[in-house]
């Protein structure tokens, strides 16, 4: 892929990720921990990683987190989306090469768990009470469910993008 094309694709993916992120902010979280989100924008991190590279996916993620905090506004948004996004990204980087592409939903499920773990850690840093861990099991479960969902969404998106002969 040509350099300009890659750059354009990165910009496009960032825009989509931001849109998903802002919409997601309107959806209630599975757990009444403020700031904890589903992590739907991870679809784009995943797609960027497969279509482009780990580094470029990291750049898309970074811009999404910074601009997302600007759009969504609340002070805890940056901390939570950064903690969740960074941990999910780390797990994706480690596992994406281990699985064939038709099992991207497994990579995504693992990343989903990591995403929620990151948010729980952020919550513990704020409240400074180990009692927050009571929410760990449900966050692990919801991480798997939303992870599989975002993984399947990423797979469909990849298929559609490839049909356009990008």
């Amino acid at each position: 892929m040509a350099k300009t094309k890659r750059l354009a694709l990165m910009a496009l993916l960032t825009a989509i990720a931001l849109t998903i992120f802002v919409i997601e902010n309107q959806i209630p979280a599975p757990v009444p921990i403020p700031g904890v989100k589903l992590g739907l924008a991870n679809i784009i991190t995943l797609v960027a990683m497969v279509l482009l590279s780990r580094r470029e996916a990291g750049a898309v993620l970074l811009v999404r987190i910074l601009m997302g905090a600007m759009f969504a506004g609340s002070p805890s948004t940056l901390l939570f989306s950064a903690a969740g996004g960074a941990l999910a990204y780390a797990v994706m980087c480690l596992t994406v090469g281990l699985f064939p592409e038709n099992r991207l939903w497994v990579v995504s499920a693992l990343a989903g768990v990591a995403h929620n773990a990151g948010q729980l850690i952020a919550c513990m840093l704020v409240v400074k009470t180990p009692g927050v861990l009571a929410y760990a099991p449900i966050l692990a479960a919801s991480g798997v469910v939303t992870g599989v969902f975002t993984g399947l969404a990423a797979m469909y998106l990849l298929r559609a993008l490839r049909k356009t002969k990008l």
């Binding site: 009444p32 921990i33 403020p34 919550c123 704020v126 409240v127 009692g131 927050v132 009571a134 929410y135």
Partner: peptide, 14 residues
């Protein structure tokens, strides 16, 4: 019940 958390106020009831 589950612990009550008020993140903006760093409050927790358990």
């Amino acid at each position: 019940g589950m612990p009550i958390i008020c993140m903006p106020h760093r409050l927790m009831i358990e």
